[in-house]
Simulated scan of single mutants.
Amino acid sequence: MARVFITGSADGLGRLTATTLLAEGHEVVLHARSAERLTAVRDLLDRGAAGVTGDLADLGETRGVAEQVNRLGPVDAVIHNAGVYGGPQVMRVNVVAPYVLTALIERPRRLVYLTSGMHSGGHADVSRLTRRGSYSDSKLFVTTLALAVARLWPGVPSNAVDPGWVPTRMGGPGAPDDLRLGHLTQEWLVTSDDPRAVSTGGCWFHQRRREPPPAAADEQFQQRLLAGLAELTGFRV
């Protein structure tokens, strides 16, 4: 059985992922923005899940999340699920926080980063980390991070997952994709012994690999992004 840390697991796909993994007998470490938000998953805590808190839009609190996870002991996998759709926090939550947690959490056996089909519309411009980047930019960057980590840490399967446009609070009630399929792939990638699930450097949609955006697979852009994130945060992957 795996021990899995899931960011942004108080609701939406993160909560659904945690619920499924617990039902399958895995250990889960939940994350919520605050102690008040963690009460939304009291039922999962009562079933044995652990919980950590911290606002991923804040660098200091993100570092605190990593410290809390490390105090709980090693995890087998991390699912970087937390995300926001827009506003001034989009880069901090969708890109900077996954980078910082990757740098600071004791290296797990598997990593999954949630992206979006909208990453194809992102701009390969690292300066957008510190100015008003778009949601598409952030998802291009986090896909790039997943592929960069796969290259730098060959012993740790690292993959990006597009969950599709599913009916969560972010996706809205009219979203057309299958909600179950929206969290199946990340669960499979962190627990299955299927040879495909332990591969690395993939960009996945409903358990099928897709070609990543060209920029995400470009080593030079990967290096520029990692350098920009290291400069911004003071941490190195």
Rank of each mutant, 00 (worst) to 15 (best):
T168K: 03
L179T: 06
D137K: 12
T19G: 10
R33V: 13
V65Q: 11
F141M: 15
G25Q: 03
T191S: 12
E27P: 02
Y99G: 04
E61P: 00
D137F: 11
G122Y: 03
N81I: 04
T185K: 01
V198Y: 01
V156Y: 05
H183F: 15
L38S: 14
E67S: 10
P173R: 14
Q186Y: 09
S134F: 08
M118I: 01
R180Y: 13
L145P: 11
F141L: 09
G234R: 11
T168S: 03
D177Q: 06
V90E: 03
R128P: 01
W204Q: 09
S138H: 07
D125R: 05
W204H: 06
T53A: 13
L22G: 02
P74A: 15
E231C: 02
P74E: 14
R224A: 15
A150K: 02
L129M: 09
M1R: 09
E211Q: 12
G73A: 07
N70T: 12
R151G: 04
G201R: 08
T130H: 11
R132V: 04
C203H: 15
R128S: 00
M1P: 09
L179A: 04
G202V: 03
F205A: 11
A215V: 05
R15K: 13
D58P: 01
H26W: 09
G48S: 08
L229G: 02
A146W: 00
W204C: 12
R33C: 07
L59H: 13
Y113M: 07
S136W: 01
Q207M: 12
E27Y: 02
G86R: 13
V166F: 12
V90M: 07
V112N: 01
A50V: 00
L179F: 07
P154E: 08
